[in-house]
Design a protein around this nucleic acid. Structure first.
Lengths: 354, 354
DNA sequence: GTGAAAGCGCTAACAT
DNA sequence: ATGTTAGCGCTTTCAC
C-alpha cells in the first residue's frame, strides 16, 4: 500500500557526517550553533543536511541531554472554550521555546490526574502546568512534590507552599459582580456553584458575599452548592425554585456549566432574562454574545494566565530559586442583556462585539 | 526551594537488576512479560521494582524499539466543543493501547499544519490522526505520503488515495435537513459556508441542494460562501440581508462559526427565530439547547469518528495492508425551536434534554 | 534460564 | 578546529 512505500530509514547524524566528510560530533556542533567550526566545513554540513533532508531526532537528543524538552499540561477537560484556549496558548508558548507540549485531560478525576502525572514523570518532562480538578491540595500536587517535579498550578488554585500558582482574580471579579447587581437594585440573589472546586469557588462566593453585604446589609444571598458532579445540580436548582418561596431577582453562577443549568431551568419555567430574573455567569463563551438575551459573564484572562504560567515555569526549569509566588490576573466583567434592574423592562439594542 | 529537594535520580533498570541480583536483561524480560524466567527470579525483580518505585522510561524504551509508542493528533483548533471532544476521545483510546497522544493545533493554517507534521515525523510517531484545515489534498497529507507516515484523515475529508479517512456523513445529514425544511414549507433558503474547507462544505452544500431541489423544484437556494476566514463572512452576510431583496425563510449554516455569525446578524436586525427566520446549523453545542429558542443542529458522531479512526490507524500501524478505506459516520439532526414553518407562530414548550 | 554485548541517535568530554 | 570515546536507559540477539 502507498503509505508504506516511502518507509526508508531516515538519515541519521552519521549519514550527514559522512556526506559532509566530517565526524558526527562536528555535525552536532554545527547544528547546535557552536562557533568553533571552520566556516567551510560548517557549510558542507549545512549542504549535506539540506541534501538529505536531515532533522535532529528530538528523542535521541533529549536522551543524551539531562533534561527533556517536553512540557506536560494537565487540564480537567478539553471540551470547554476556557481550557481549549488555555491548551492552545500553552502549546504556542512551549513551541516558541523549542519545547513540545504534551497535553492530557484528567476528565475531572483526581485519580486520573495523578496517573497522568506519573506518566509524565516517566517521560521526565522538564515541567508541568497543572490545572487541578479540585485545588492545590489534591494528590496530584502531592505527587509532584514527592517526586521533585517542577511545575506551576493554575486556575482552580489560590496559593501553594511548594509551587507557583497563577489564576484569575475570582474574588475581585465577584466583588465587581456584586457591585453591579446591588447597584441595579437587586436585594435577593442566588449563587450557584460546584463545591468540589473548593479553591476558586470559595473565593468567588466570598468575594461576592463580602462586597454585597457591605453595600447592602439587608441583601439576601441564597447559595446552592453541589459537592460532586454537575448533574445533581440540575435537580438541586429545580428544587430550590420549586419551593415556592420568594424568587430571587438575580442568579450568579460561579462556573460555566452552572450557567447552562440555570438557563435550562429558566427555560423549563418559561422565565426570560432579564425580565423574570437576571443572570450572570463566571466564564465567558462565544455564544453568550449572540443569543437573545446576550448573557452577562466574567471573562477570565486566558492569555495572561497561560503567559505567566509558562514564564514562571521556565524560570524554575532554568533553576531560578526563591519562594513560590501566587499570581492573580484580573478578570473583565461583561454586563450584557441578561442582567437588568429587578422588575424593569428589558433594555433594547444589540450586545457587544469585539 | 521545596521542589528541588527530592530531585534524586530516578532508579534505572540497572538499579533494579542489582537489587534483585540479576542482570538488566532479565529485568527487561520480566517487565515485558517474557515467560522464560525462573519464577523465583521474576518475583525478586518484581519486589525490587516495588521497593525502588521503578518505572520504565518510555523514551529510552522507544529509542531501542523500532516504532515509538506515540500517536500524533493534529486538529484545526482546540476551542470548539467538537475538536475538544475529539482530542479527549483520541487521548483515551491511545492510552488504552499504551500509547501517548501528542496533540497539536494547526490554528486553521495549512503552513502550520505541515510544520507540526514535520515535527511529529521527527518524533517518529507511530501514527497520526490528522484533521486537515482544508481537505485531503493539502500539503500536510502530501507530506505524510512523501515520508511514508502512517495516518488517518478525519473530519474535513471525503476520500483519499493513500490514507484511510473517517468523517461525518455530511451529505446525508444535509439531505435530512433539506427534507425537514422543505417539509415545513420553506421555499427560499440561504446556505452559509466557509469555502476553504472544500471537502466537507461541498458535500454539505450539494447534499442539501440535491434533496431540496428533488422535493421542491421551485425552491430558491441562495449561497453565501466565504473563501478564507470567518470575519469576512460577517460582512458578506450583512450585505446579503441588506440588499433589500426577498428575505429567505430559513438559514442553513454549514459550520459552527457560521451559525454564530448568522445569530449575530439576526440579533443586529432584531429578528427572532423561528418567527422572523428559521435557523439550522451544522455542529451541535451544549448551549444550543438551553437558549431561547433552542438552536436546531446537526450532531456529528464524535465518539464514532474517533473510535473508527483509532481502530483503523492501529490496524495500519500493525502492518495491515489493503487499499485505503473511506468511512462515513451518520449524523443526528436535532430539529429544535429555531426552526418553524414560514410565517407560523412559534411552537411552545422546552427543548430537548439528554 | 540468564547475562554479556551491541546498539537506537544523539551530545559532551576529552584528546588531538 | 576536529575526531574519538563514552555513554543516556533501554531492548534484543546470541552465546552460555
Amino acid at each position: 500500500m502507498a503509505q508504506k512505500e516511502a518507509q526508508q530509514r531516515r538519515p541519521s547524524i552519521h549519514d550527514v557526517a559522512s556526506h559532509a566528510g566530517v565526524s558526527a560530533a562536528t555535525v552536532s556542533k554545527v547544528l547546535s550553533g557552536v562557533t568553533t567550526v571552520k566556516p567551510e566545513n560548517a557549510q558542507r554540513v549545512l549542504d549535506a543536511v539540506e541534501m538529505l533532508g536531515y532533522r535532529v531526532d528530538p528523542l535521541a537528543s533529549d536522551m543524551r541531554r539531562a533534561k527533556r524538552r517536553i512540557i506536560g499540561a494537565i487540564m480537567p477537560e478539553f471540551e470547554s472554550e476556557f481550557f481549549g484556549q488555555m491548551v492552545s496558548e500553552l502549546e504556542g508558548l512551549a513551541e516558541q521555546r523549542g519545547y513540545t507540549l504534551v497535553a492530557a485531560s484528567s476528565r475531572e478525576s483526581e485519580a486520573r490526574e495523578k496517573e497522568i502525572l506519573a506518566r509524565m514523570h516517566d517521560w521526565r518532562v522538564a515541567g508541568v502546568v497543572l490545572a487541578p480538578v479540585r485545588n492545590e491540595h489534591g494528590p496530584a500536587a502531592a505527587f509532584m512534590k514527592a517526586n521533585g517535579m517542577t511545575g506551576v498550578l493554575i486556575d482552580r488554585v489560590l496559593a501553594d507552599d511548594a509551587f507557583d500558582t497563577v489564576s484569575a482574580d475570582s474574588a475581585a471579579a465577584s466583588a465587581e459582580v456584586a457591585r453591579a447587581l446591588v447597584g441595579m437594585g437587586h436585594r435577593h440573589v442566588l449563587v450557584v456553584g460546584l463545591g468540589q472546586q473548593a479553591a476558586t469557588v470559595r473565593a468567588r462566593l466570598e468575594g461576592f458575599r463580602r462586597t454585597a453585604l457591605e453595600l447592602a446589609p439587608d441583601i439576601r444571598i441564597d447559595v446552592v452548592l453541589c459537592e460532586s458532579d454537575v448533574e445533581p445540580l440540575r435537580a438541586l436548582l429545580h428544587d430550590y425554585f420549586s419551593k415556592g418561596a420568594e424568587r430571587p431577582t438575580a442568579v450568579y453562577s460561579l462556573f460555566l456549566k452552572g450557567t447552562l443549568v440555570a438557563l435550562s431551568e429558566f427555560r423549563r419555567r418559561g422565565w426570560h432574562c432579564p425580565n423574570d430574573i437576571s443572570l450572570v455567569g463566571f466564564d465567558d463563551a462565544e455564544w453568550m454574545q449572540v443569543t437573545w438575551p446576550a448573557i452577562a459573564a466574567v471573562v477570565q484572562p486566558v492569555r495572561e494566565i497561560a503567559g505567566n504560567a509558562m514564564e514562571v515555569l521556565f524560570r524554575r526549569i532554568e533553576g531560578e530559586g526563591g519562594p513560590p509566588r501566587a499570581r492573580l490576573e484580573p478578570c473583565k466583567v461583561l454586563m450584557r442583556e441578561s442582567v437588568g434592574s429587578p422588575g424593569s423592562v428589558p433594555h433594547s439594542g444589540g450586545g457587544d462585539r469585539q
